[in-house]
């Protein structure tokens, strides 16, 4: 059953250095508050998993928290490059970053296999692409019924998945809606699950298109209002588009980045 905990206690209890950590939210409900708490607690040597490692992973990578990244599209959505990600990959700053690179379809199916507790998933994918030449988690399998050769992708089973949702009830049942992305699969694929929420309510009134994660699939729920900023939480907060544009300038320069993180993430808790 999910325990309602402070964000600080939830991160300290569930996210450890060296873990494989998936933080999902497909351009919506991105768990920034939890990432900032991880940075403050100096969690490091992580294998970070995420389909779209946008600004949230730019921050973790730039602070040296990651040794490896598993992903399918690494950009600043609607703006351009992720400069801290590029600096780590191209120049090894602040540390080298190993990559396992997929397509979106491949990553989505890796989570489906993980949630299903299967060793791999099949899809019609990667045909003719150079991507399999750089990944040990893409192979092929022959269909035993038709003889068709299909792509096989290894399951992802994170040590811990961290997501942000709109709300939970006092028993720790979690509800999220809008663009629901791949959060359900990422949560069910993981050994441990941490969910930050906008608020805790007495009753989870049904909402169209909502995903509900029952309390017994979640380890900890932490209240983090506006915890998806600068992304958004449908029904609660809107995307801070100016932030994404400003991030381009902040993240271009190593010193400017470190100063920003110091002032806005590290100092923020002191």
């Amino acid at each position: 059953m999910a325990e309602i905990r402070s964000l600080r206690d939830a991160v300290a209890g569930l996210v450890h250095s060296g873990d494989t950590v998936a933080m999902e939210g497909f351009t919506h409900l991105i768990p920034f508050a939890a990432a900032h708490e991880m940075i403050r607690q100096r969690v490091t040597d992580l294998t970070l998993v995420r389909m779209t490692p946008d600004v949230i992973y730019d921050q973790l990578i730039g602070m040296g928290a990651a040794r490896k990244l598993v992903f399918s599209w690494g950009g600043n959505p609607g703006v351009g490059s992720l400069h801290r990600f590029r600096d780590a990959v191209e120049n090894g700053w602040p540390r080298p970053l190993e990559l396992d690179e997929h397509s979106h379809a491949g990553m989505a199916n890796r989570y489906v296999a993980g949630a299903s507790r299967l060793p791999f998933a099949v899809l019609r994918g990667y045909r003719g692409s150079d991507l399999p030449s750089r990944s040990a988690t893409i192979s092929t399998v022959v269909c035993p019924f038709t003889g068709e050769e299909l792509a096989a992708v290894a399951a992802i089973n994170p040590d811990v998945t961290v997501i942000h949702a709109q709300r939970a009830d006092r028993d720790g049942n979690v509800q999220l809606w809008g663009l629901v992305g791949v959060q359900k699969e990422a949560a069910l694929a993981a050994s441990r699950v941490l969910v930050t929420v906008e608020e805790i309510v007495d009753d989870l009134t049904p909402t169209p298109g909502a995903v509900v994660l029952p309390s017994w699939t979640v380890d900890a729920v932490a209240v983090a209002p506006n915890g998806a900023h600068p992304s958004y939480a449908a029904g609660y907060t809107v995307r801070d588009n100016g932030f994404y544009q400003q991030w381009d300038a902040v993240s271009r320069d190593r010193d400017a980045f470190l100063r920003w993180m110091d002032e806005n993430v590290l100092e923020a808790a002191r």
């Binding site: 992903f71 399918s72 599209w73 690494g74 950009g75 490059s81 992720l82 990600f85 590029r86 990959v89 191209e90 120049n91 690179e101 997929h102 397509s103 979106h104 379809a105 899809l123 019609r124 994918g125 990667y126 045909r127 692409s129 991507l131």
Partner: peptide
């Protein structure tokens, strides 16, 4: 010189396939 990084595949390989 190190390879220059682009964003990556995203959905494109399977969009172009299917």
């Amino acid at each position: 010189r190190p390879e220059g990084r682009l964003p990556g595949a995203g959905g494109a390989p399977e969009i172009a396939a299917s």
